[in-house]
């Protein structure tokens, strides 16, 4: 099996991330569920790096789409990224509002304690 450059780089990067995930787990910074999901994800990335044709062939066979499979995949990826961006934007706005509220409550509470 002849390896392309990305088939070396992607697994190496994935291994670094797996190591980091395990380190976080051992240091008590993450739970076993988070660590397991993360490790499975990066193992999956390694798998697809080694067998890039496997995913498209499997999807084509499972859904019976024999042609234009790449177009379908890219369209779906585009949709996923779009909705991911919308979610991320909403998440950031909520985070910012929560911080502003937390800060105001903290400073107001300090003011009340001074007045007492």
């Amino acid at each position: 099996m002849q390896l392309e450059l990305y088939q070396i780089i992607v697994p190496l990067v994935s291994i670094v991330f797996i190591g980091s995930l395990l380190q976080r787990f051992w240091a008590g910074k993450s739970g076993w569920q988070e660590a397991m999901v993360g490790v499975l994800f990066w193992v999956g990335v390694i798998f697809f790096a080694f067998f890039p044709d496997f995913i498209s062939q499997t999807i084509a066979e499972v859904f019976g789409i024999k042609s234009n499979i790449n177009a379908v995949i890219f369209f779906c990826l585009g949709l996923i990224f779009f909705f991911q961006y919308k979610l991320f934007l909403l998440f950031k706005q909520q985070q910012s509002a929560l911080t502003t509220l937390t800060r105001k409550l903290a400073l107001d509470d300090d003011e009340k304690r001074r007045e007492q």
Binding site: T102, R103, A106, L107, D109, D110
Partner: peptide, 25 residues
């Protein structure tokens, strides 16, 4: 120390900015 408390954990940056807001006030 004087203590100003966030009700929930917001991170080191949020804490630093609360310190700045306190100093301004």
């Amino acid at each position: 120390a004087i203590v100003v408390s966030h009700l929930v954990n917001r991170g080191a940056g949020a804490g630093a900015q609360t310190g700045i807001a306190y100093a301004r006030k």
